[in-house]
Computed example of a mutant assay.
Amino acid sequence: MSGFILNELLDKLSKRDAGATHFGGSLELRVATADAKKRMVVYEYEVTEEEIFRGYLDSGWLSTVVDNATDPLIRATTASPATSFTSSLTVHTLEPVLPGTRLEIVCRLVLVEGRLLQSTVAFRDAQRRNVVYATGVLTLVYKDAAALLGAGGGAKL
């Protein structure tokens, strides 16, 4: 775990790229916990009517949150944010949700191997943690293997 410490992760969570535009970057996700050893960040968020479509969390909103919420974990792993990659993002709505529901958005970096990086996200009820409203998976395949671990000063897990 050398090089990837909690302070680095929290710094990445609190500071976004000053010159970069992040779609949905104005979402008010509050960091509840961060654990560098587990490669995990948990956010808290209260659902509004705008995030619900036909009784479920909207898939576009979910995709935006999966992308933005996992970004700090990914950036802490890669050597360069400008490195090119191919991505795949999948979301699944599982249970109906009501406005005012407090979510825990649990983000985990689950795979860092070669040029492949994968993170998972669970949108669960903050009061009833066994209730999961939606899940997401973000997979990145880097075109330049040097962008990942051990190259050019990137953080090591």
Rank of each mutant, 00 (worst) to 15 (best):
E95P: 00
V106H: 00
G153Y: 06
Y43K: 09
N68Q: 08
T70E: 11
T101E: 07
T135L: 10
R128E: 14
V112E: 13
L138E: 00
G55Q: 07
S87F: 03
A36Q: 10
T139E: 09
S119D: 00
R75Y: 14
V121R: 01
L111F: 02
F53D: 14
F123W: 09
G100L: 04
K15G: 06
R30G: 03
L138S: 00
L140Q: 12
E104S: 08
G153D: 11
E51C: 08
D35A: 03
S88N: 15
S87G: 05
E28S: 10
E46P: 02
L13P: 02
E46L: 07
E51Q: 15
D144P: 02
A69V: 00
D35C: 08
V66T: 06
R129H: 10
R30L: 09
S88W: 02
L6P: 04
T21W: 06
G114E: 14
V131I: 15
L103T: 05
I74G: 04
R75F: 14
T78F: 11
F123V: 01
I52E: 09
G154L: 02
E51A: 13
E8W: 03
V31Q: 01
L6Q: 08
E113C: 11
S26H: 12
L157E: 08
A151N: 05
L111N: 06
V42Y: 10
A146H: 10
R115C: 10
S88F: 08
S59P: 08
L27P: 01
V132Y: 08
E104F: 09
L62Q: 14
E8M: 08
V42E: 11
F85E: 00
Y142H: 12
Y56L: 15
K37Y: 01
A69R: 01
A126Q: 05
N130V: 04
A82W: 12
L27E: 14
G60D: 00
V47I: 13
T135K: 11
G152S: 12
S80M: 11
E8A: 08
A151M: 02
T78C: 12
L6A: 12
A79K: 13
Y43T: 05
L157R: 11
G154C: 01
Q118Y: 02
V112R: 03
E44R: 15
A145Y: 04
E113R: 07
R102N: 09
R129C: 04
L116E: 13
T120F: 15
T90H: 05
D71T: 14
E8S: 07
T83S: 13
A34E: 03
R75Q: 14
L148H: 04
T83P: 01
C107W: 01
L111C: 09
F85Y: 15
A18Q: 14
L10N: 11
M1I: 04
A32F: 00
S63E: 07
A122T: 07
V65E: 00
L98A: 15
E44V: 07
A155S: 15
L94K: 12
P72M: 09
L149Y: 06
V91S: 03
L29N: 08
K12S: 10
L57G: 03
K38W: 06
M1A: 13
F4K: 03
A82G: 10
R115L: 03
I5L: 10
